[in-house]
Design a protein around this nucleic acid. Structure first.
Lengths: 248, 248
DNA sequence: CGAATGTTTGAACCCTTTCAAAGACGGTGG
DNA sequence: CCACCGTCTTTGAAAGGGTTCAAACATTCG
């Protein structure tokens, strides 16, 4: 497991707008920073946005100035082909950082849109780099977050390049489950924020195949599916579908 | 076998393998650094390895200490399933940096093996971070390189998730072609360092499909294929296969 | 030269896609 | 509050692109 933190429950009490009091402390950029250093980070995060479902955080081709940390909510990132076809590159939730692909060229290569009402912290990148220059712990944590994005993208390549539909959906659900658990939510009962089409798009399948695979999992007693509410009834069997894809 | 670290002092005698005189200056980590700063970077890159075809640079699960910059040669990175099935995550050539996925957990998640005799510069990561703390240009260039890896991985997801066999091979060949061109080699005639099986593995296809698609491209006059020597005879038509996948 | 590795080509099969139509849900406005 | 409409989902049947299995051929290297 990449993060070794104890699951954190997000409550109203700690939704105050500073890194120091943020529940995501241990998932996000401030991880490992002292109180004083967290305060310094706080000072460059001068904007905290409320975004509504459907709002764009950034668009492909737009100038890159800031990274965005998700304080609460759910996003998808995607590219658009020249005829409007969407290709989803990732789903991001509480504590995740968006926009790291844009550093290389000062422009965003993808779009990011909220799938539900969300709160995000805008982190001006040049100021982050400057601060990281004097806070080695911050620099290291930032490198770890970028590195984790690389690892996750490469794992997704494995999924797209080698797995059958059942395994793709199983891997997707287990991944979501683990990420929810890490954030203090139930790992075996959760609500999907995306449509079947978006799931299929992300997994390299059609929406029909996703729908049929959900139906099969339900028939086999692995899942209980009610529209977008999923209950994992037999996580062992779900995980067993991924045998042979575990790292050796 | 693991390569052993033997510090080498930078002297006039081996100046030819210093960053300052390296042809990859503009592709690699030193990009944008002053002569003096490049010298400082040079001093932490105390090992330059000669690796032979088949040598491992690192293995999945191994402790992460260093990044590796390819001075010359060609590598593949891959994961191994629990029954030995390989999944190739990338091909890397001159000027590319290997090992960035390992920063997040201090362990390598993938394997890296040379597909031809190569030369690599080993960059102790903790020293790189330390130096980057006092050289903002170096830090920024490093961030750009990590970011580029993310962008490229996500583009590969698009390929694996949406494209047909012909488009995958076309995208693969065009990508190789552009990378060779950037390094001063011919963009329309080059030698493949990998087998059909490795290409297929990387593209999410079987070796048979790769072979058949090469044959079709040749029959259509798009390519001239001789074993592993490829000549692009109609790059416009090759690129046209990727219409609709251009960023909007 | 012989064995191992890599490549080509053919034919049958299968998983997923594509096309189609009906059903369920949720939001909006009357 | 309910009817309506757009969006999303389910399910069926047919078609297709790629895989799988198989065999022959080429190439490389000890």
């Amino acid at each position: 497991m990449l993060l070794q933190s104890i699951p954190i429950k997000v409550t109203l009490a700690n939704l105050k707008s500073s890194c120091a009091s943020c529940a995501l402390h241990e998932l996000c950029l401030p991880m490992g920073l002292s109180a004083g250093d967290t305060e310094r980070l706080d000072q460059i995060i001068n904007v905290r946005h409320k975004t509504e479902r459907g709002d764009y955080l950034y668009r492909s081709g737009g100038i890159f100035r800031s990274l965005f940390a998700i304080k609460s909510g759910f996003f998808k990132t995607f590219s658009l082909g020249d005829e409007g076809q969407e290709k989803i590159t990732g789903f991001y939730m509480t504590g995740d950082i968006l926009g790291m692909d844009a550093i290389s060229s000062d422009r965003h290569h993808y779009n990011a849109v909220a799938l539900e009402d969300s709160m995000v912290c805008e982190i001006p990148f040049s100021e982050l780099e400057e601060l990281a220059g004097s806070l080695p712990t911050l620099a290291h944590q930032f490198h770890k977050l970028m590195s984790r994005e690389i690892t996750q993208d490469q794992q997704h390549m494995l999924l797209l390049g080698k797995m059958k539909a059942e395994q793709r959906l199983a891997a997707f659900l287990l991944n979501l489950s683990q990420r929810f658990a890490l954030r203090g939510f139930s790992s075996d009962h959760f609500h999907l924020r995306m449509t079947r089409e978006e799931i299929g798009n992300y997994l390299g399948l059609t929406l029909e195949t996703v729908s049929r695979t959900f139906a099969r999992f339900q028939a086999e007693g692995i899942l209980q599916v009610n529209h977008r509410d999923v209950t994992v009834k037999d996580s062992a069997r779900l995980a067993a579908l991924l045998d042979h894809y575990e790292p050796a």
